[in-house]
Structure formats: C-alpha cells, structure tokens
Design a protein around this nucleic acid. Sequence first.
DNA 1: AAACTCCTTGCAATCGATTGCATTTTTACA
DNA 2: TGTAAAAATGCAATCGATTGCAAGGAGTTT
Lengths: 340, 340
Amino acid sequence: MTFKVRTLSDLAKLAGVSGSTASRALNDNPLISEKTRKKIQKLAADHGFKINTAARNFRLKTSNTIAVVIVKSSELDQSITDPFVLNIVGVIAEELRIHKYDVLLVSHNIGQAASLDEYFNMNRADGLIVFGQGDDIEAFDDLINKQHPIVVWGAQSNGNDYVTVGTDNVKGGELATQHLIEQGCQNIVFCGVRSFETGLRFEGYQNALKHAQLNIPDALDIHFTFEDAYRVTLELLKQNKFSFDGIVAASDTIALGMIRALNEQGISIPEQVAIVGYDDISVCAFTQPALSSIHQDTQLGGKALVSSLLDLLAKKPVESIMLDTQLVARDSSCRKLNKT
Amino acid sequence: MTFKVRTLSDLAKLAGVSGSTASRALNDNPLISEKTRKKIQKLAADHGFKINTAARNFRLKTSNTIAVVIVKSSELDQSITDPFVLNIVGVIAEELRIHKYDVLLVSHNIGQAASLDEYFNMNRADGLIVFGQGDDIEAFDDLINKQHPIVVWGAQSNGNDYVTVGTDNVKGGELATQHLIEQGCQNIVFCGVRSFETGLRFEGYQNALKHAQLNIPDALDIHFTFEDAYRVTLELLKQNKFSFDGIVAASDTIALGMIRALNEQGISIPEQVAIVGYDDISVCAFTQPALSSIHQDTQLGGKALVSSLLDLLAKKPVESIMLDTQLVARDSSCRKLNKT
DNA sequence: AAACTCCTTGCAATCGATTGCATTTTTACA
DNA sequence: TGTAAAAATGCAATCGATTGCAAGGAGTTT
C-alpha cells in the first residue's frame, strides 16, 4: 500500500525528483524532458493526485473564478428568483465551465457598505458579471470600479464607463406598444416598478403612444413577481379602476400574474384586454392564452456576457453590446381584426 | 495621499506594529489590548483594507465555500435550466450568504472521469450540495465519498450512506394518482423519463392504481422540458394514440407542455383529461387552467440542505430528512363532479 | 529592590505551488 | 579527448495571513 500523495513534494519524492521538476512536469513545461514529464504525469494519475487549487491560485494571484453578482436594490427585489435571471445564470455557468472558470454566485445588497471591489481585493474573483442596475443608477454605478474586469447586464447609462451587455429596451417597449396599437388598443398601460432598464422600456412605450397620438396613463407600480401583479390587478378590477384595453408588462412574471386576475374576473384576453410581456421566458409559449412577449435571448445574452468578460480579462478592447430584440406575438395580444 | 494598503504588513507598518498584532487585532483576538485593536480596525476601515481571502483560506486550509453541484446524467439532461432546480439553488445561495459561505456553482457530467472528491482535494469547497441522482443510482452513488461533508437532494437509495434531503416521492406519486381517481379518471398515465426520484413517484402512482384495481398503462418517456412534453403529446394525439383521461406528470414543465398540446387539439382540461404536475413551481397558480401539482417547498428544502450541511461541517450527527409533501389541487384536475 | 505575575507584542515557521537563477548533466563539435 | 553549447534539473525565495512560542514591559507582592 502506497502512502497518500497529497502535495506536490510528496509526488516529487515518490518520483525521485525535486518539487520544481514535478511542478513543471505537470504543467507540461518543455524545460522538462519528455520522459520525465510522462513519468510524473502517470504517477500523478495513478495516485489520484490533484493540485491544490487554493495554493496554486494564491501563488499565482489568480482565482480562476468569475463571480456572478445579483444586486438587490431592496428587500422586495426578488431578482434572484426571477426565471429570466436564473435562466441566464444557468447559461453563464455552463459557458464558463467550458472555459474552465469556476462560478461564484453572490447576491449583494446595494445597501451594504462594501463595494464590489472587495471581490477583487480579496482575490475571490478574476472578473464579475453583474445583474441588477436597479432604480438608482448612480448608486449602482458607484459600485462599479472601471479599473476591474466587470461586465454588467443591462444598458448604458449617461455617465457609466463600464461594459454592458443587454438588449434594446427602448425598442422592446416600442415594439410591444406599437403591436398593441395595431391590434386596436386605445388605452394602453405600462406595468412594472421603475428601474433603470424598465425606465427605458417605458420610454419606448411612450414614444409609440406619442407617435400614435394616444393618451399615456400613469404606469402601475408592480414588483417583478406573480403575486404582486395578481394582487394589484385584482384590487384595481374590484374597484372598477381598471379601464385599459392593452397592457405592456415589464416582465413575463408580471404579465402572467395579471392575466390570472383578469381571467378570474371574466375578462377575455385578448378581446377585452390585449397583453404583451417582456423577456419571453420559456413558459410563455405554453400558457393559456400563450403570452406575447419581447424576446431577450438568454443563450445569446449569457454567451455575450462571458465572451466580453473573457476579452476584458485578456486585456482586449471591449465595446458594450446591445443585442437585438424582437416581438413574439402570441394569442394574448392577437385579435382577429374585423376590418369593417 | 496615503499609499495603498494592500497587505496585512502594509497595515501593520502604518500602525507601527508587527504583522501578527495586526492579524490578531482584525480577528478581535483578546490577546491584543482593546486600544490597539480598535486603532488597527479603524485604520483598516479608513484605508478600505480587506483581508486577502485566498491567502487566508490557504493558510487555514479552508475554502469557506460550498459547491452546489448539478450532475448531468446525459446531454439531454436539462437540470440546470429547470425552474425548480434553479429556484432551490437561489434559496441555497441566499441562505449560505447569511452564514458567510461563498457558493460555487458547478455542473458536473456524470461521465467525466473525476469524482466529486476533487473539489475537496483541490481545496475548492468545504462541503457539497448535490443535485441529480439521475437514472443510474449506482453510478451516482460512486461519485459520493461518504468521508466528506456532502448533502444530496433526493431520496435514500438502498445502499447509499450519504445524507439526503428530499420530499416523499412515493407519497407524492400516490397523492396525485389518488386525487385523479377521486375525480373519476379511469385511465391514468405517468409521464416523465425514468430517474431515481421519478421512479419513486412512479411507484406511488402504481400503488394507488393497484389499490383502486385500475389498469396501469406504460409510462410515457418525456424529458424534463416543455418542448419535449409538447412534442411527444402532440405526436400521440395526432396518431390517435392518446387514450387517457388522467395524467400524472413527473414535473410541472412536462405538465405545461402537455397541456399546451391538449389545448391545441381541442381537448378540454380537466373534463376530458385531468392533469397533475410535480414540484409546484410558482407559475402553476397562474397558468390557465391553473395547474394542480405536488408541492415541494423550495424554501424548506433549500434551508434544510444548508442546515444539514452546516451540521456535517460542525461534525454533528446528521440524519437524512424526508420532507412532507402535499397535493395542491387546482383547476387542471378538479372536475365539478355530478353525483348521480 | 528583587522576584514573580500578568498582559502585550514580536519573531519566525508554516501552508503548497511556482519560477528566476544557478548548477549539473548531456550532447555536439572541433 | 577537451570544451563549448544546450538541455535538464534543483535551490531557494515568494505569495499573505496565521499562530506557537519567546520576549519585553508594567504592575504587584514581600
């Protein structure tokens, strides 16, 4: 029975060489002769020796880790359980695995004292992918130190100098609204709490309404959860304050919660109220009625985030990316128009 | 302008003490006088000094990290994008953050040579939370080294000697099936590819049918995605091979995909076909018809996984946990029964 | 004031892998 | 065979924080 080979020098002793040789051999360094290399590599494999990553990373001042940071703007912010965010995180994890990076999953309260720098100071991550620009873009921007390799999911703000990857939120808002207008809606409401990203969607929504010379009602403040959307909508309906014939929802979760409430109150979709969601999460195609939505591709988005970050890490110049976005029209918004 | 305080000895120099004193001061070690401690802590705060975690972890042979490992049994295994899994991962991340642990998110192909031991050898994780017992329970069990602090989401297998946390899958299968029987279904089919966990659900389903002396049709092999469920169901319907009046789906994603296909073909739910899903993901309450489901509580589950793991790390004795599970009956399965 | 505590602080080794430079071994060529 | 060049290997320092042990200093007791 051989003894347990725990460290590099254990391995070296076993092979009758020095630690340096063993180290270089395992790293396929050509300084070491082919023969010695093979011998040591075989020995390592036979004894199930695995390099101590902690020691290695420490010595090399690297972490081989990318932190995916989900910033919570408030206690009510449920981003970390939103299907869209979780889905894109899944894509990122898979993508980074291919590039041999570890993924650290972190949720960070925007209130907490520390900035995101700590992940670098503490040598916990080589780079950051950040979600959640939230509603206070300046507070958010302060978190980001442009010296470090960071990519943010979202949109460019006026003064920000970090790299972003996201979709065209203004266009998304426009597309959704235009589509409803084309379906004959006259009184279209925007639903979703204000954040930097939803603000842009709201802007697009306003553009479309102005262009069609339609009235712009106050937006409904709804958090990004089924429950809140359901609650708020039901309340309005019961109070007879729901006078809209079209809804642009800031996310699919919101749209689905609203649909539920509308259905319960016997309001037909899309005839009485047409509705378009946002994100195009995978259930959309499978709800009843199927939910029209603005498609944000999680595969594309996740991969773009990763490749931009890898470029930053490689010191290559990186531009922010705005991915295209498009409307996927389904039953929840498509009226069979009678042309009279 | 003060110079950048990067290391502990930078800080020590600045304070005019030795590195050891600085280290102890920051760790609130009572060996150091109150006065010195406060002084150094203030200095650290003022200069934004953060301990280098990599160095610290290396010295202390800890990682302060829990790896959440999602085992893929095959290329078709989409676990990492399944809403239920992602949701519980979100809960775990939040919970571990409270306990000051970092979360490493890993997806691991069951095929790949290395066992899960590597995460310990390489000092990357202090403990593991593992998802995905898959279909080959022996292959899975081989991955788990009982010497290490590991908690698995799922069920106890015959020979396994690791700690599991999960819900009562047999009971879940039974509940769903009994419910459908009570609703008057005579020909109930089980839908979902075979895995260790779904096998147990299938067992419960069989128990209920046997008890009611009903026929047990062959289960339908469907992967855990909307798309596959939709495709398979549509195919059967078109070939007139869909002769069931009740469906027990192994997951909600499967149920939703099937509902979509049934709807499209004009089959009414629950009148012609009643259906119960599994997991009770949050959309269930908001689909149309609302989906009946077997509730698996992600909050409870996530917290139980974490607390069991923390106990293991603290060398406390830990028993596997089987959480209770229950049926949430909604429109997709509740017929207005006419008692004649 | 000597002797003895007790309280603070510093010295130096340690964790395991990597790497610049020095040293030894091998090869090549005159 | 002698010697230079090339190839292979080893020595020892290094990354930054922690900690057992030693040492310095203040205070107390007889």
